[in-house]
Amino acid sequence: MNVSELLGKPVLDLSTATTVGRIDDVVLDVPGRRLHGLRVGKSTGAGEWLAWDDIKAVGSDAVTIDAVDRVGAIPAELPGCWLRGDKALGGRVLSDGGRELGSLTDIDLDAESGALQSVVLGDRRLEADSLQGIGTYATVVRDPADR
């Protein structure tokens, strides 16, 4: 499952069968190598934050939750930046050797666990453990061997 597929998906509250909002951004926990949470745009809930662990399922057409109170206020402390809001997606990718590798096309996640699977740069895929950080200037990955 790519992050780009997640963006735009409706969040469906299974207890009332209503749409709470649509996912418009995500935060990655880079040291933990997994998806931390999502922002629910135009949310009808108490806030716009949906932690990954509070999701019931990610389907092809919707992300489901079992109650609307799963959606709450955005935490003050986040382990990473907003992939879309901070322009990480589509932004610059640098190797830890200081070489520009291209731009970040997408991030591939495990749909069950939210674990990071690979970092997608155009038609290249880099292993999840090569990711060093996602910052305001660039996404940093370990220098791939093919130079």
């Binding site: 880079v30 640098l94 830890d96 950080g133 910052g135 305001t136 200037y137 660039a138 940093v140």
Partner: peptide, 8 residues
């Protein structure tokens, strides 16, 4: 000058 976490 960029940190390994991606900030300039």
């Amino acid at each position: 000058v960029v940190t390994l976490t991606g900030d300039d």
